[in-house]
Computed example of a mutant assay.
Amino acid sequence: MRTRPALAAALAPAVLLGLTACSTGSDDGATAEPAASGSASPTAQCAPDDLPTLTEGTLTVGAGEPYEPWYVGDPSSGEGFESALVYAVAAELGYDAEDVMWETVTFEQIISPAIKPFDLAAYQTTITEERAEAVDFSSPYLTSRQGVIVADEGDYADAASLADLEGARIGVTAAQTSLDAAESAWGDAVEITPFSAAGDGMTALTSGTIDAMVMDVDQGVAASTVYFPDTQVVGTLPDVGEPEQLGLVLDKDSGLTACVSAAVDALEEDGTLDELRTQWLKSDDIEQLS
């Protein structure tokens, strides 16, 4: 297995954000329970020597190109929410850091029913019933919200409510959760423009083509502080349907699923996930727009 090289520093912000276009949206808006595992038990046979990984004694993890806040630099650095999460899960399962290998994959590879080149993938993948027919999910490790980003010097910089944004040109990522959330929040009171990637929408926002962009709030915080510093997140949209939750992805009926879920559950119970969210995701104090 190969270790993924660090992302070149010259890579454009729009390209970085564009990589997230598929990963945070839901196919049908439904939240599914983690899929059942194969024969593994959550309380037994979870040591590295007993786990049916692709390579004995090694945990191979799939991810896309790194971008904040999920990955800071190369995934093997342990910097960024999902990189730190993977190493915490690996440690819970008994793996040393050097036993974790990274495999660069596309989002399509992650959610397809084909045999995977990884044991698990960490790629901001929403748990849905449709996807759970093709892959296994771990217990959820994050409940996501949709944030609204505006330009610091734009007409809507002081927006504090949904009503304040009526009449605005709102960008969303096509066929993703942001589209459903925006339509539910404003209906016909705004002009919604779909973009193929979040980075395209943020570029349109900074150029004045649109007035606001809706995307995953944690991604939006990173976009406004790292990649597009002349923008800000003014709030989140009301939830639409079931909460959108992210899970680690495994092969359908993987013998690893129960153990990986048990590890995520243990990290939730002992407060590790809360610590990682606080450290890497800076959205706790962003309030929902009324």
Results as ranks from 00 to 15, higher is better:
G29P: 03
T203M: 12
A204R: 03
L11A: 11
W280T: 14
D28T: 13
F118C: 14
G208S: 06
V217A: 10
V135F: 05
E275T: 15
R169I: 07
S184A: 15
A198D: 09
E79D: 12
T231P: 10
G235K: 04
D74A: 13
A157W: 03
V233A: 11
P42R: 13
T143N: 10
P75Y: 15
E82N: 04
P5E: 14
V190K: 05
V260W: 11
E269F: 05
A258H: 14
L93M: 15
L16T: 07
A181W: 02
Q219I: 15
A157N: 12
G29D: 00
R169F: 03
F118V: 10
E103I: 10
S283Q: 11
T60E: 07
D180I: 10
A157G: 14
E130I: 14
L54M: 04
P34S: 12
C22K: 01
A258V: 01
G271P: 08
S290Y: 12
G187T: 10
E56A: 08
A168K: 01
E56C: 09
L11Q: 11
D265S: 07
C46I: 06
D164T: 09
G271E: 05
V240T: 10
A258T: 01
L11F: 09
G235F: 12
I110N: 11
E244F: 02
S138D: 13
E268G: 14
V105E: 11
S139G: 07
P243S: 02
S23P: 04
A185F: 13
D218H: 04
D218V: 14
I170K: 06
E275P: 14
A63W: 03
L281D: 06
P66F: 00
Q232I: 06
V86M: 07
A88Q: 14
G94T: 07
A114V: 06
Q146W: 08
Y227S: 09
T177F: 06
L179V: 06
